[in-house]
Design a protein around this nucleic acid. Structure first.
Lengths: 208, 208
DNA sequence: TTTCGTCTCCTACCGGGGTAGGAGGCGCCG
DNA sequence: CGGCGCCTCCTACCCCGGTAGGAGACGAAA
């Protein structure tokens, strides 16, 4: 039996959730809370397996409630259920330790499935949210080292150091060549990359 | 009925998968392939709903097979099933367009569930993989815009433009102020941020 | 009111960045 | 062999970037 605590400031939503859960043989709603402070207190007392947590609430919000609950009992599965899936809600919730993130416009079966998966140690996400999450992760990965081809090896070396913010003199010393040589390389780098100045050159080297 | 194409170079694994799927009333294995080239050909001919794709394969690998298949029929759901869940497998697969990523050590029910969710438009991930994905996304978020405090609003504006790679003259024009004023701000910016030159200043503005 | 911080701009100077053009040495390839 | 591309370095020049120091105007706070 999965023991669930429902946290939402709208009692209509709580009622709907409770009805939904009560109809399931394997899910039991052990308590409700309509704000963050109450949620923290009830979670401590009732020790639920899963907390279904709204974010926007009067007083203590869902994010801080989540961190408090997890600080108290780290094993608790906090599943965020909210109307707003934007980044400003999603990432703080995840940083706070929420294991999943569902949107309220999801079908009831998804929610029940989410509770079961959360209880089983999985991380349920709404498709839309998950897509953004993947996108950002891939994007973060993607713009790691974009090597800018068409350059000679020496030019690439100089470019890397420019991207580090080194001066021509520093680059020359680092590569054991003359400052004028560095200038030569940089002039050709700017022409090849179409950069009007050194900062832009550094930026294209970093794939910006 | 979900029509599935199994792609894996080990026929033992294919056999196991086929047996597993054939026991399901809603899943039908319509074909198999033991390398990327075959996978592309069979996907084009059989038009499966879901492709269960291994990555490490002789000849054409799973990544390129995935992009080819999706280039041909974008609606296809490619679900990666592999032993290796490291970043070098995960991110190329996602960039190639895989909708999900499961590890072979997952229980059979997870795989079947994954195929069903993939077919339904969802994105199934193994818990372990998903955890890393979330971590990276959150991390990417965390070090996104570090606004460098202690600066006046005007300085911040100038800094932003420096970070874009603009020259002093361009910045002056953009902010409708004199070039000397821009210089003044930049001198104070360098002193405040401890940057020895303009490029480093741009880099700290970008949180590097 | 005085004081402080910020924004604005100035002059003057200097050094580094960037351009133009040329040149020598090296290794590779036809 | 001759040619080509790359790396190296040079001179000479200009201008932008950056420093130093000062100054006037304004608004908020003491």
């Amino acid at each position: 039996m999965i023991r669930v605590l429902l946290v939402d400031d709208q009692h209509l939503i709580r009622a709907g959730l409770r009805m939904l859960c009560d109809a399931q043989p394997d899910i039991e709603v052990v308590g409700e809370a309509d704000n963050g402070r109450e949620a923290i207190a009830r979670a401590a007392r009732l020790r639920p397996d899963v907390v279904v947590m709204d974010l926007r609430m009067p007083g203590v919000d869902g994010i801080t409630a989540t961190s408090r609950i997890l600080a108290d009992r780290p094993g608790t599965r906090v599943l965020v259920l909210t109307t707003f899936g934007d980044d400003d809600h999603l990432y703080p919730a995840l940083t706070a330790g929420a294991c999943g993130f569902l949107l309220k416009d999801a079908p009831p079966t998804d929610l029940l499935d989410g509770i079961r998966r959360a209880a089983a140690g999985d991380s349920p996400f709404s498709q839309e949210v998950l897509r953004r999450l993947v996108q950002r992760a891939v994007h973060a990965r993607a713009e790691a080292p974009p090597p800018v081809d068409g350059l000679t090896t020496r030019e690439q070396e100089v470019l890397d150091l420019v991207a580090e913010g080194l001066s021509n003199a520093e680059i020359a010393e680092r590569l054991h060549i003359g400052v004028t040589t560095v200038k030569t390389h940089i002039t050709s780098l700017m022409s090849k990359t179409g950069s009007p100045n050194r900062v832009r050159l550094a930026l294209v080297a970093r794939g910006v």
